[in-house]
Simulated assay, not measured.
Amino acid sequence: MSAPLEQLSAAGVSVWLDDLSRSRLASGGLAQAIADTSVVGVTTNPTIFAAALRDGGAYAEQVAQLAAEGGSVDAAIDAVTCADVGQACDVLRPVYDRTDGADGRVSIEVPPHLARDAEGTVEYACRLVRAIDRPGTMIKIPATEEGLDAITRVVAEGISVNVTLIFALGRYRRVVEAYINGLERAREAGHDISQIHSVASIFVSRVDTEFDRRLEEIGTPEALALRGRAGLANCRLAHRIAGEQFDSERFRVLAAAGARRQRPLWASTGTKNPAYPDTMYVTGLVTEGCVNTMPEATLRAFADHGEVHGDTVVDGYAQADEDLDALSRLGIDYAQAMDRLEAEGLEKFEASWDELAGSVGEQLAAAREERA
Protein backbone atom coordinates (compact mmCIF):
# COMPACT_ATOMS: atom_id res chain seq x y z
CA MET A 1 0.00 0.00 0.00
CA SER A 2 1.29 3.44 -0.94
CA ALA A 3 2.17 5.53 2.14
CA PRO A 4 0.96 8.82 0.59
CA LEU A 5 -2.39 7.27 -0.32
CA GLU A 6 -2.70 5.74 3.14
CA GLN A 7 -2.08 9.18 4.63
CA LEU A 8 -4.65 10.72 2.29
CA SER A 9 -7.26 8.16 3.30
CA ALA A 10 -6.41 8.64 6.99
CA ALA A 11 -7.00 12.37 6.53
CA GLY A 12 -10.61 11.62 5.55
CA VAL A 13 -10.36 11.72 1.75
CA SER A 14 -12.05 8.87 -0.10
CA VAL A 15 -9.96 7.91 -3.14
CA TRP A 16 -12.03 7.04 -6.19
CA LEU A 17 -10.70 6.02 -9.60
CA ASP A 18 -11.93 8.03 -12.56
CA ASP A 19 -11.81 5.17 -15.04
CA LEU A 20 -13.49 1.86 -15.88
CA SER A 21 -13.23 -0.66 -18.69
CA ARG A 22 -14.06 -4.30 -19.34
CA SER A 23 -10.36 -5.09 -19.67
CA ARG A 24 -9.63 -3.54 -16.23
CA LEU A 25 -12.35 -5.72 -14.74
CA ALA A 26 -11.31 -8.90 -16.55
CA SER A 27 -7.63 -8.50 -15.70
CA GLY A 28 -8.31 -7.92 -12.02
CA GLY A 29 -6.91 -4.41 -12.34
CA LEU A 30 -9.74 -2.84 -10.37
CA ALA A 31 -9.40 -5.36 -7.56
CA GLN A 32 -5.66 -4.70 -7.52
CA ALA A 33 -6.23 -0.94 -7.31
CA ILE A 34 -8.50 -1.47 -4.31
CA ALA A 35 -5.87 -3.62 -2.62
CA ASP A 36 -2.81 -1.53 -3.48
CA THR A 37 -3.86 2.10 -3.90
CA SER A 38 -6.66 2.77 -1.39
CA VAL A 39 -9.28 3.03 -4.16
CA VAL A 40 -12.78 2.80 -2.65
CA GLY A 41 -14.97 3.94 -5.56
CA VAL A 42 -15.17 4.46 -9.32
CA THR A 43 -16.55 7.22 -11.52
CA THR A 44 -17.39 6.93 -15.21
CA ASN A 45 -18.62 9.27 -17.92
CA PRO A 46 -19.22 9.10 -21.68
CA THR A 47 -15.57 9.98 -22.37
CA ILE A 48 -14.35 7.04 -20.30
CA PHE A 49 -16.72 4.57 -21.96
CA ALA A 50 -15.89 5.90 -25.43
CA ALA A 51 -12.20 5.26 -24.73
CA ALA A 52 -12.95 1.77 -23.40
CA LEU A 53 -15.02 0.85 -26.46
CA ARG A 54 -12.24 1.85 -28.87
CA ASP A 55 -10.74 -1.52 -27.99
CA GLY A 56 -13.59 -3.69 -29.14
CA GLY A 57 -11.92 -6.98 -28.24
CA ALA A 58 -13.01 -6.98 -24.62
CA TYR A 59 -16.62 -6.37 -25.65
CA ALA A 60 -16.75 -8.60 -28.75
CA GLU A 61 -18.68 -11.47 -27.18
CA GLN A 62 -21.37 -9.26 -25.66
CA VAL A 63 -21.66 -7.12 -28.79
CA ALA A 64 -22.09 -10.26 -30.92
CA GLN A 65 -24.91 -11.42 -28.65
CA LEU A 66 -26.56 -7.99 -28.79
CA ALA A 67 -26.27 -7.99 -32.58
CA ALA A 68 -27.93 -11.41 -32.75
CA GLU A 69 -30.79 -10.08 -30.64
CA GLY A 70 -31.28 -7.21 -33.06
CA GLY A 71 -31.07 -4.46 -30.48
CA SER A 72 -30.55 -0.79 -31.23
CA VAL A 73 -27.34 1.16 -30.66
CA ASP A 74 -28.84 2.90 -27.62
CA ALA A 75 -29.94 -0.41 -26.12
CA ALA A 76 -26.47 -1.85 -26.73
CA ILE A 77 -24.82 1.13 -25.02
CA ASP A 78 -27.02 0.58 -21.98
CA ALA A 79 -26.27 -3.14 -21.93
CA VAL A 80 -22.51 -2.70 -22.24
CA THR A 81 -22.12 0.14 -19.76
CA CYS A 82 -24.53 -1.32 -17.20
CA ALA A 83 -22.67 -4.64 -17.35
CA ASP A 84 -19.37 -2.91 -16.59
CA VAL A 85 -20.85 -0.87 -13.76
CA GLY A 86 -22.57 -3.92 -12.29
CA GLN A 87 -19.32 -5.91 -12.29
CA ALA A 88 -17.46 -2.99 -10.72
CA CYS A 89 -20.13 -2.77 -8.00
CA ASP A 90 -19.59 -6.46 -7.28
CA VAL A 91 -15.83 -5.98 -6.96
CA LEU A 92 -16.39 -3.02 -4.63
CA ARG A 93 -19.14 -4.66 -2.57
CA PRO A 94 -16.86 -5.41 0.42
CA VAL A 95 -15.97 -1.70 0.54
CA TYR A 96 -19.65 -0.77 0.31
CA ASP A 97 -20.49 -3.07 3.22
CA ARG A 98 -17.53 -1.91 5.32
CA THR A 99 -18.37 1.78 4.90
CA ASP A 100 -22.14 1.40 5.21
CA GLY A 101 -22.61 2.54 1.64
CA ALA A 102 -20.57 5.74 1.79
CA ASP A 103 -17.93 4.25 -0.50
CA GLY A 104 -17.88 1.14 -2.68
CA ARG A 105 -19.74 3.31 -5.18
CA VAL A 106 -19.73 3.23 -8.99
CA SER A 107 -21.17 6.21 -10.86
CA ILE A 108 -22.86 6.03 -14.26
CA GLU A 109 -24.13 9.08 -16.10
CA VAL A 110 -27.44 9.63 -17.86
CA PRO A 111 -26.90 10.43 -21.57
CA PRO A 112 -25.70 14.01 -22.12
CA HIS A 113 -28.57 14.83 -24.47
CA LEU A 114 -30.87 14.68 -21.43
CA ALA A 115 -28.99 17.43 -19.57
CA ARG A 116 -31.77 19.94 -20.37
CA ASP A 117 -34.62 17.43 -19.92
CA ALA A 118 -35.62 16.88 -16.30
CA GLU A 119 -38.38 14.39 -17.07
CA GLY A 120 -36.16 12.34 -19.36
CA THR A 121 -33.35 12.37 -16.80
CA VAL A 122 -35.59 11.02 -14.04
CA GLU A 123 -36.94 8.24 -16.27
CA TYR A 124 -33.47 7.26 -17.45
CA ALA A 125 -32.02 7.31 -13.93
CA CYS A 126 -34.71 4.94 -12.69
CA ARG A 127 -34.10 2.68 -15.71
CA LEU A 128 -30.36 2.51 -15.01
CA VAL A 129 -30.94 1.64 -11.36
CA ARG A 130 -33.28 -1.20 -12.34
CA ALA A 131 -30.90 -2.49 -15.02
CA ILE A 132 -27.79 -2.52 -12.82
CA ASP A 133 -29.61 -3.66 -9.68
CA ARG A 134 -26.70 -3.15 -7.29
CA PRO A 135 -26.80 -1.10 -4.08
CA GLY A 136 -23.49 0.58 -4.94
CA THR A 137 -24.89 2.24 -8.05
CA MET A 138 -24.77 6.04 -8.11
CA ILE A 139 -26.46 7.97 -10.92
CA LYS A 140 -24.62 10.98 -12.35
CA ILE A 141 -26.79 13.97 -13.23
CA PRO A 142 -25.32 17.22 -14.62
CA ALA A 143 -25.97 20.32 -12.51
CA THR A 144 -27.78 22.25 -15.21
CA GLU A 145 -30.86 24.34 -14.39
CA GLU A 146 -33.05 21.44 -15.50
CA GLY A 147 -30.80 18.99 -13.72
CA LEU A 148 -31.55 20.60 -10.37
CA ASP A 149 -35.19 19.53 -10.58
CA ALA A 150 -34.14 16.06 -11.73
CA ILE A 151 -31.76 15.72 -8.77
CA THR A 152 -34.56 16.42 -6.31
CA ARG A 153 -36.92 14.00 -8.03
CA VAL A 154 -34.38 11.19 -8.35
CA VAL A 155 -33.29 11.49 -4.70
CA ALA A 156 -37.00 11.51 -3.77
CA GLU A 157 -37.18 8.04 -5.37
CA GLY A 158 -34.57 6.83 -2.89
CA ILE A 159 -31.77 6.80 -5.48
CA SER A 160 -28.20 7.85 -4.70
CA VAL A 161 -26.91 10.63 -6.95
CA ASN A 162 -23.56 11.97 -8.10
CA VAL A 163 -24.22 15.54 -9.21
CA THR A 164 -21.67 16.30 -11.89
CA LEU A 165 -20.36 19.21 -13.96
CA ILE A 166 -20.45 21.75 -11.11
CA PHE A 167 -18.47 24.93 -11.59
CA ALA A 168 -20.07 28.06 -10.11
CA LEU A 169 -20.50 28.49 -6.36
CA GLY A 170 -24.03 29.81 -6.79
CA ARG A 171 -25.00 26.70 -8.73
CA TYR A 172 -23.36 24.50 -6.12
CA ARG A 173 -25.46 26.09 -3.39
CA ARG A 174 -28.56 25.19 -5.37
CA VAL A 175 -27.26 21.63 -5.85
CA VAL A 176 -27.13 21.21 -2.08
CA GLU A 177 -30.64 22.63 -1.79
CA ALA A 178 -31.88 20.23 -4.49
CA TYR A 179 -30.42 17.30 -2.56
CA ILE A 180 -32.00 18.41 0.72
CA ASN A 181 -35.34 18.92 -1.07
CA GLY A 182 -35.06 15.37 -2.41
CA LEU A 183 -34.34 13.95 1.04
CA GLU A 184 -37.40 15.67 2.46
CA ARG A 185 -39.58 14.23 -0.29
CA ALA A 186 -38.02 10.79 0.09
CA ARG A 187 -38.77 10.82 3.79
CA GLU A 188 -42.38 11.85 3.12
CA ALA A 189 -42.66 8.96 0.64
CA GLY A 190 -41.52 6.48 3.27
CA HIS A 191 -38.02 5.78 1.97
CA ASP A 192 -35.22 4.94 4.39
CA ILE A 193 -33.20 8.09 3.85
CA SER A 194 -30.18 6.63 5.65
CA GLN A 195 -29.64 4.54 2.50
CA ILE A 196 -29.45 7.57 0.20
CA HIS A 197 -25.97 8.88 -0.49
CA SER A 198 -24.80 11.71 -2.71
CA VAL A 199 -21.65 13.45 -3.85
CA ALA A 200 -21.33 16.79 -5.62
CA SER A 201 -18.63 16.73 -8.30
CA ILE A 202 -16.91 20.11 -8.41
CA PHE A 203 -14.48 20.41 -11.31
CA VAL A 204 -11.02 21.77 -10.62
CA SER A 205 -8.44 21.74 -13.42
CA ARG A 206 -10.88 22.97 -16.07
CA VAL A 207 -11.49 26.05 -13.94
CA ASP A 208 -7.79 26.86 -13.91
CA THR A 209 -7.56 26.31 -17.66
CA GLU A 210 -10.29 28.90 -18.27
CA PHE A 211 -9.16 31.46 -15.71
CA ASP A 212 -5.47 31.08 -16.60
CA ARG A 213 -6.34 31.85 -20.22
CA ARG A 214 -8.04 35.07 -19.14
CA LEU A 215 -5.19 35.99 -16.82
CA GLU A 216 -2.64 35.50 -19.57
CA GLU A 217 -4.67 37.75 -21.86
CA ILE A 218 -4.38 40.48 -19.22
CA GLY A 219 -0.69 39.69 -18.91
CA THR A 220 0.25 41.94 -15.97
CA PRO A 221 2.49 40.60 -13.19
CA GLU A 222 -0.46 40.71 -10.79
CA ALA A 223 -2.58 38.69 -13.23
CA LEU A 224 0.10 36.12 -13.99
CA ALA A 225 0.73 35.61 -10.26
CA LEU A 226 -2.87 34.33 -9.91
CA ARG A 227 -2.51 31.48 -12.39
CA GLY A 228 -3.33 28.10 -10.93
CA ARG A 229 -5.25 29.58 -8.00
CA ALA A 230 -8.88 29.77 -9.17
CA GLY A 231 -9.61 26.03 -9.19
CA LEU A 232 -8.48 25.40 -5.63
CA ALA A 233 -10.09 28.60 -4.36
CA ASN A 234 -13.41 27.65 -5.93
CA CYS A 235 -13.39 24.19 -4.32
CA ARG A 236 -12.45 25.54 -0.91
CA LEU A 237 -15.30 28.03 -0.93
CA ALA A 238 -17.71 25.33 -2.11
CA HIS A 239 -16.66 23.33 0.93
CA ARG A 240 -17.47 26.30 3.13
CA ILE A 241 -20.94 26.49 1.56
CA ALA A 242 -21.46 22.79 2.28
CA GLY A 243 -20.63 23.38 5.94
CA GLU A 244 -23.17 26.18 6.15
CA GLN A 245 -25.92 24.22 4.42
CA PHE A 246 -25.47 20.98 6.31
CA ASP A 247 -25.13 22.66 9.68
CA SER A 248 -28.57 24.23 9.22
CA GLU A 249 -31.53 23.36 11.42
CA ARG A 250 -33.34 22.13 8.33
CA PHE A 251 -30.74 19.45 7.68
CA ARG A 252 -30.40 18.58 11.37
CA VAL A 253 -34.02 17.41 11.30
CA LEU A 254 -33.19 15.12 8.38
CA ALA A 255 -29.95 13.94 10.00
CA ALA A 256 -31.91 12.89 13.06
CA ALA A 257 -33.87 10.60 10.72
CA GLY A 258 -30.64 9.14 9.33
CA ALA A 259 -29.86 11.46 6.41
CA ARG A 260 -26.27 11.61 5.13
CA ARG A 261 -24.45 14.76 4.13
CA GLN A 262 -23.74 15.15 0.46
CA ARG A 263 -19.96 14.98 0.20
CA PRO A 264 -17.96 17.32 -2.03
CA LEU A 265 -16.15 15.36 -4.74
CA TRP A 266 -13.12 16.93 -6.40
CA ALA A 267 -13.31 16.07 -10.11
CA SER A 268 -11.09 16.82 -13.08
CA THR A 269 -8.09 16.49 -10.79
CA GLY A 270 -5.49 15.66 -13.42
CA THR A 271 -3.35 18.74 -14.07
CA LYS A 272 -3.71 20.02 -17.61
CA ASN A 273 -0.83 22.51 -17.38
CA PRO A 274 2.51 20.62 -17.34
CA ALA A 275 4.05 23.53 -15.43
CA TYR A 276 1.95 22.63 -12.38
CA PRO A 277 2.78 19.83 -9.92
CA ASP A 278 1.00 16.67 -11.02
CA THR A 279 -0.51 16.21 -7.55
CA MET A 280 -1.59 19.80 -6.86
CA TYR A 281 -5.32 19.06 -7.03
CA VAL A 282 -4.92 16.30 -4.46
CA THR A 283 -2.50 17.88 -1.98
CA GLY A 284 -4.39 21.18 -2.17
CA LEU A 285 -7.80 19.64 -1.40
CA VAL A 286 -7.33 17.51 1.71
CA THR A 287 -10.11 17.63 4.28
CA GLU A 288 -12.27 15.24 6.27
CA GLY A 289 -15.38 13.92 4.52
CA CYS A 290 -14.63 14.54 0.85
CA VAL A 291 -13.92 12.43 -2.25
CA ASN A 292 -11.13 12.88 -4.79
CA THR A 293 -11.72 11.00 -8.05
CA MET A 294 -8.46 10.66 -9.93
CA PRO A 295 -7.47 9.51 -13.40
CA GLU A 296 -4.95 6.71 -13.18
CA ALA A 297 -1.97 8.96 -13.98
CA THR A 298 -2.80 11.23 -11.03
CA LEU A 299 -3.41 8.26 -8.75
CA ARG A 300 -0.02 6.80 -9.61
CA ALA A 301 1.71 10.16 -9.23
CA PHE A 302 0.27 10.70 -5.77
CA ALA A 303 1.08 7.12 -4.77
CA ASP A 304 4.68 7.78 -5.78
CA HIS A 305 5.38 11.27 -4.42
CA GLY A 306 2.21 12.80 -3.02
CA GLU A 307 2.27 14.71 0.24
CA VAL A 308 -0.37 15.34 2.89
CA HIS A 309 0.07 18.54 4.91
CA GLY A 310 -2.97 18.51 7.16
CA ASP A 311 -6.25 20.15 6.18
CA THR A 312 -5.64 22.30 3.09
CA VAL A 313 -9.30 23.18 2.51
CA VAL A 314 -10.70 24.70 5.73
CA ASP A 315 -7.37 26.37 6.42
CA GLY A 316 -7.52 27.86 2.93
CA TYR A 317 -10.89 29.66 3.15
CA ALA A 318 -9.37 33.11 3.73
CA GLN A 319 -6.85 32.76 0.90
CA ALA A 320 -9.60 31.52 -1.40
CA ASP A 321 -11.66 34.63 -0.70
CA GLU A 322 -8.64 36.80 -1.45
CA ASP A 323 -7.90 34.97 -4.70
CA LEU A 324 -11.43 35.29 -6.10
CA ASP A 325 -11.58 38.93 -5.02
CA ALA A 326 -8.30 39.55 -6.84
CA LEU A 327 -9.68 37.96 -10.01
CA SER A 328 -12.72 40.23 -9.80
CA ARG A 329 -10.56 43.33 -9.36
CA LEU A 330 -8.79 42.43 -12.57
CA GLY A 331 -12.12 42.54 -14.39
CA ILE A 332 -12.55 38.79 -14.86
CA ASP A 333 -16.24 37.90 -14.99
CA TYR A 334 -16.62 34.86 -12.72
CA ALA A 335 -20.19 34.06 -13.77
CA GLN A 336 -19.40 34.31 -17.48
CA ALA A 337 -16.38 32.04 -17.13
CA MET A 338 -18.37 29.40 -15.23
CA ASP A 339 -21.23 29.49 -17.74
CA ARG A 340 -18.73 28.92 -20.52
CA LEU A 341 -17.19 25.98 -18.66
CA GLU A 342 -20.60 24.34 -18.18
CA ALA A 343 -21.47 24.74 -21.86
CA GLU A 344 -18.08 23.38 -22.96
CA GLY A 345 -18.37 20.46 -20.53
CA LEU A 346 -21.73 19.45 -21.97
CA GLU A 347 -20.40 19.76 -25.52
CA LYS A 348 -17.46 17.49 -24.69
CA PHE A 349 -19.70 14.86 -23.10
CA GLU A 350 -22.07 14.97 -26.08
CA ALA A 351 -19.15 14.52 -28.46
CA SER A 352 -17.90 11.56 -26.42
CA TRP A 353 -21.40 10.05 -26.40
CA ASP A 354 -21.56 10.39 -30.19
CA GLU A 355 -18.16 8.70 -30.41
CA LEU A 356 -19.39 5.93 -28.12
CA ALA A 357 -22.53 5.45 -30.20
CA GLY A 358 -20.47 5.38 -33.38
CA SER A 359 -18.12 2.75 -32.00
CA VAL A 360 -20.96 0.54 -30.76
CA GLY A 361 -22.81 0.96 -34.06
CA GLU A 362 -19.75 -0.11 -36.04
CA GLN A 363 -19.19 -3.13 -33.83
CA LEU A 364 -22.85 -4.17 -34.08
CA ALA A 365 -22.72 -3.85 -37.88
CA ALA A 366 -19.51 -5.89 -38.08
CA ALA A 367 -21.00 -8.62 -35.86
CA ARG A 368 -24.12 -8.81 -38.03
CA GLU A 369 -22.04 -9.05 -41.19
CA GLU A 370 -20.04 -11.87 -39.66
CA ARG A 371 -23.24 -13.77 -38.88
CA ALA A 372 -24.69 -13.21 -42.37
Rank of each mutant, 00 (worst) to 15 (best):
T81M: 11
Q65S: 15
Q363E: 09
A168N: 03
M280N: 07
G243E: 13
S14V: 14
A50N: 10
E355Y: 01
E184F: 01
R134I: 06
L341T: 06
S107E: 03
M280T: 10
V360Q: 03
D97K: 11
M280C: 14
T152S: 15
V207Y: 00
P46W: 09
T279W: 01
S268W: 01
L330K: 01
R134H: 13
S9I: 01
Q87D: 14
G41R: 03
R134Y: 07
V80T: 07
N273A: 08
V175G: 05
E146P: 04
Y59T: 12
A79N: 06
R250Y: 04
A143N: 01
L169Y: 00
L324Y: 01
A242N: 06
K272R: 14
D117R: 04
C290V: 15
A367Y: 01
A60F: 09
P46A: 12
Q7K: 15
T209M: 12
H197W: 11
G345L: 05
G86Q: 05
P112A: 15
V73P: 06
A351I: 01
A51N: 14
W16A: 13
T47F: 03
R260E: 11
T43Y: 10
H305L: 05
N45R: 09
E296S: 12
H113M: 12
Q87R: 15
D100G: 13
G345I: 03
Y276W: 09
R229Y: 00
G219A: 10
K272W: 11
Q7W: 02
L128N: 07
L183K: 04
R22Y: 07
I139V: 15
N181F: 00
A318V: 12
N45D: 10
L20S: 12
F246T: 01
L299P: 08
Q262C: 08
L30R: 12
R98G: 14
D354S: 14
S352Q: 02
V40D: 14
Y334K: 02
N162L: 02
N292W: 01
F302R: 05
D321S: 11
A238G: 15
R174I: 00
R340S: 13
M138E: 07
D78F: 03
I141Y: 07
A26C: 08
S268F: 02
D149W: 06
R236W: 05
A326T: 06
S359H: 11
G243H: 09
A257F: 04
A125V: 04
A156H: 05
R98W: 05
T144A: 06
V80I: 15
V154K: 05
Y96P: 00
R22P: 08
G101T: 08
A131I: 11
D117Y: 09
G101F: 07
A267K: 03
I34Q: 13
E244N: 01
